[in-house]
């Protein structure tokens, strides 16, 4: 894959000096977070953890352990019933709907387990969508999307519809879309869950490249082997609680 250097760079528009603090400051600070659903089921119970800038962290655990819920809370897609989630200095758990949307646009990129590509849009329109929603001109968004697709080896698939792509290609399109607005944080929910072994390896290499380019990664997976191989640190969840974790900023 052609990994164009300027394309996968991490950037945070709101804090131009963020790069200087990357290694030492905490990008994600989760403090005593609980999430209980209306039916009484507890998804997360008093979870606390930190992720520093530039880290590549895997959250692992069996189904129902609360790892996807934790990712949703970091992404501002859901709210905790107790505790707080702070990302890049922003208390995500206290954001309203509009502020939450703006936060997702500017600060994070999400790669979903089932890719969540829009079937009626072409690959390039899918990738460009986050920038277009932010008000970026069509031309500028297309230029950036083309760069990303090129760097991810999808230049020749730009006008295809998602239904015509392989699983690995869809995952790469989802990654390109997540990187579109140059987020400070990239979240991935079971990025290999729907892929065959060849595609899994491809995604693993892609995530490693992104990390190498300086991106902060939080990956939710039940695949511990994948986590061990492609991330710096693993946080283990079971029944909504952290049952094992290496300290923030530590490396394997």
């Amino acid at each position: 894959m052609d990994q164009g250097e300027p394309v996968l760079r991490p950037m945070c528009r709101c804090r131009p000096d963020a790069y200087l603090h990357r290694v030492t400051s905490s990008l994600i600070d989760i403090a005593r977070v609980s999430r209980t659903y209306s039916d009484g089921s507890v998804a997360l119970d008093d979870v606390s953890l930190q992720v520093v800038r530039g880290e590549s962290v895997a959250i692992v655990g069996p189904s129902g352990s609360g790892k996807s819920t934790l990712l949703n809370l970091i992404a501002g897609l859901d709210r905790p019933t107790a505790g707080s989630v702070t990302v890049d200095g922003v208390v995500v758990s206290g954001l309203g709907e509009k502020a939450s949307a703006l936060y997702r646009r500017r600060t994070i990129g999400i790669v979903f387990q089932s890719f969540n590509l829009l079937d009626d849009l072409t690959v390039i329109d899918n990738v460009a969508l986050p920038a277009r929603l932010m008000g970026t001109s069509r031309r500028a968004a297309a230029r950036r999307a083309n760069e990303l697709l090129g760097s991810l080896g999808l230049a020749d698939r730009r006008d295809a519809y998602p239904g015509r792509l392989s699983g690995g290609e869809r995952q790469r399109v989802a990654v390109a879309r997540a990187l579109m607005n140059e987020p400070a944080l990239l979240l991935a929910d079971e990025p290999t869950g729907a892929l065959d072994s060849a595609a899994r390896a491809e995604v693993g290499r892609l995530l490693a490249d992104l990390h190498a380019a300086g991106h902060t990664l939080v990956i939710v997976t039940h695949d511990e082997e994948f986590a061990d191989r492609h991330t710096q640190r693993t946080i283990r969840l079971a029944d909504g609680r952290v049952v094992g974790a290496t300290p923030a900023g530590a490396s394997r």
Partner: peptide, 16 residues
């Protein structure tokens, strides 16, 4: 609803 969820997760505001 599915597409709507994707749009919202990508940063579409309530107004949008």
């Amino acid at each position: 609803a599915h597409d709507l969820g994707i749009h919202r997760s990508l940063g579409m505001t309530p107004r949008q």
